[in-house]
């Protein structure tokens, strides 16, 4: 009998929770008058980066109930598109590395312009003077390699075409990963599609997300991959047998942050953007082993990162407006080459 009682209590709890979660929208709307604010950020930044930012932000703004959804940029855009179609946009702020998406969203008129008081300190190769989006980080990508298997680290992109890399290199799926999408755009613009075709001829393949290719390199499943700076270095710090090199032509990809038009949580959203661009926020970003978008915040030394000024000077260039228009065809062509179709 006692057991049964517990059983029913558990079920009651389950149902009440479902009711609560289902109806939570209304309850928070009424609580807004009491200055309790809500904020939902969709970001492609991994837990190691966004987790610490959340902790610091919540500490600074205890009345904002902050939540985030971390996934590849492709998934985030799909989620947003589906939410827009069902007229129920959940996210207030988006922060990914897929710049073409930001330009497209600005053109569609679904972003809220906001020039943060901190924005004047930001230096980025891509910027929007009207403030529809602002770079909160300068992501750099290099060649991540397995130190157990690669005794002779590559120096240039062309090294990857050597026989010792046969069947051992991967680039993340550009449909899933924003950094991969932009990287491919930059590489194709610099070296042409022939380079991708030659990579494929040398047995390179398409991986999944930008994190998974790095993990597969760490396990030795891959010899190397195009790796994101902080994902790779974080794993190196934890002891993974990885190394990262930045060839002369660098992949520098700003990660813009933007606010959605019509968000009911505008003031909280602005607070978050301010925080990201503040010295405090940028220091957390820098300490997570990537480049801050503020020159006045120092980077972590001795982990192989390139100073922002040098990185931007060495960076491959592309016309982002053009890349936006060609985005789908770039993804399609890359997948076609990699899957041998």
């Amino acid at each position: 009998m006692k057991k049964q009682t517990w059983f029913w209590i558990a079920i009651l709890m389950a149902i009440s929770n479902l009711l609560y979660a289902g109806g939570s929208k209304e309850s928070t709307a009424s609580a807004q008058g009491e200055k309790k604010e809500k904020l939902m950020v969709y970001t492609s930044m991994k837990e190691v980066l966004i987790g610490e930012l959340r902790d610091a932000f919540v500490k600074k703004h205890p009345n904002v109930s902050f939540d985030y959804y971390s996934a590849g940029a492709g998934k985030i855009m799909a989620k947003i598109a589906a939410e827009r179609q069902s007229k129920q946009l959940v996210c207030d702020v988006i922060w990914t590395s897929e710049i073409p998406d930001f330009i497209a969203m600005k053109k569609e008129g679904i972003l809220e312009p906001y020039i943060s008081p901190e924005a004047k300190n930001v230096v980025s190769p891509v910027s929007d003077p009207e403030g529809y989006f602002t770079a909160a980080r300068l992501g750099t990508l290099g060649i991540t390699y397995n130190t157990n298997k690669v005794k002779n680290p590559p120096k240039t992109w062309q090294d990857l075409l050597k026989p010792e890399w046969k069947g051992g290199f991967a680039i993340a799926n550009p449909a899933l990963s924003g950094t991969a999408m932009v990287s491919i755009g930059l590489i194709v613009n610099t070296f042409g599609w022939e380079f991708i075709e030659k990579l494929k001829a040398n047995g390179a393949r398409m991986g999944q997300g930008s994190g998974q290719v790095v993990d597969d390199t760490a396990s030795g499943d891959l010899l190397g991959c195009i790796g994101v700076d902080y994902i790779t270095i974080d794993k190196i710090k934890k002891g993974a047998p990885l190394g990262i090199v930045f060839p002369p032509e660098m992949l520098v990809i700003p990660s813009p942050v933007a606010i959605f038009k019509g968000t009911p949580n505008l003031s909280a959203a602005k607070k978050f953007v301010d925080f990201l661009l503040s010295k405090e926020g940028q220091t957390i970003i820098a300490n997570s082993y990537t480049l801050p978008s503020r020159p006045d915040v120092p980077i972590v030394k001795d982990v192989g990162l390139v100073e922002a000024k040098d990185a931007v000077a060495r960076a491959m260039k592309v016309d982002y407006n053009k890349l936006m228009a060609e985005k789908q065809s770039v993804i399609d062509k890359f997948q076609q080459i990699m899957q041998g179709k």
């Binding site: 994190g211 998974q212 993990d215």
Partner: peptide, 21 residues
């Protein structure tokens, strides 16, 4: 699933896909 409604299965799958093996 939505941003706050992942299930155990989805969370495992997403973590694996994100390279958080």
């Amino acid at each position: 699933y939505g941003p706050t409604t992942r299930t155990i299965g989805v969370a495992i799958y997403a973590l694996n896909e994100d390279g958080e093996t």
